[in-house]
């Protein structure tokens, strides 16, 4: 204990590197998702142009997907709460906010799983069902990544890292979280509202 107390403090890090890197990574993640979405809407438009039915009437309901929408909105507030708290060196609030965000993430995962089961779709039944699965599966993959990023950040915060001046990890995790939430909001309109 006394030995480590005599050791020098770690050097200051460049404060924007992690955030800029996360910004580019978020951009790449968003483009993967939009790549899948583009194919989805394109094939749906082609099917409609031919007069074919994309989904059977009433199978994809707006209710559960709307709950995901609102849950993600709440999570965007809580993750910003964490950013604010860590910048103010208010660790208890930061832990609560990070924990709540992850809880909302788990709820979204649960709701998404429910939707995939509730529709009764199968991967190989039709092009529409297949693309519905791939699009939502890609979203779930990014959601898991975002939750892992948050978990890692929370762990580091609990180990004593981050200070009002050196706290890039938390806003970076928040930036990726907002990106994933935005992916869903766009999907909600493009897939669930305009079926």
């Amino acid at each position: 204990m006394t030995a480590t107390a005599r050791l020098p403090s770690p050097e200051l890090r460049r404060p924007r590197t992690v955030l800029v890197g996360t910004m580019f990574a978020s951009a790449a993640a968003a483009m993967v998702y939009f790549g899948v979405l583009a194919l989805y809407v394109s094939r749906r438009a082609e099917a409609r142009a031919l007069g074919a039915e994309w989904f059977p009437e009433g199978v994809v309901e707006l209710g559960p997907s709307g709950w995901i929408f609102w849950t993600l909105i709440m999570s965007s507030f809580t993750v910003q709460w964490a950013v604010q708290a860590i910048q103010n060196e208010d660790r208890p609030n930061a832990y609560v906010a990070l924990g709540l965000t992850m809880l909302f993430g788990a709820a979204v995962f649960n709701q998404m799983w429910f939707i995939l089961n509730d529709t009764g779709f199968s991967l190989d039944a039709s092009e529409a069902q297949f693309l519905f699965f791939v699009l939502n599966g890609t979203f779930i993959a990014f959601l898991i990544l975002a939750m892992a990023f948050l978990f890692l950040t929370a762990l580091r915060a609990m180990f004593g890292q981050y200070s009002p001046r050196q706290n890039d990890g938390v806003p970076a995790a928040a930036m990726f979280w907002h990106t994933v939430a935005t992916m869903y909001w766009i999907t909600w309109i493009a897939v669930y509202v305009t079926k």
């Binding site: 993640a29 968003a30 483009m31 993967v32």
Partner: peptide
Amino acid sequence: PVLIANLIIIVVDLRGGPLV
């Protein structure tokens, strides 16, 4: 990333999709 999206769709289709 758009190429990666294409590859995801093709591979998932090969592994159990309707082979579209």
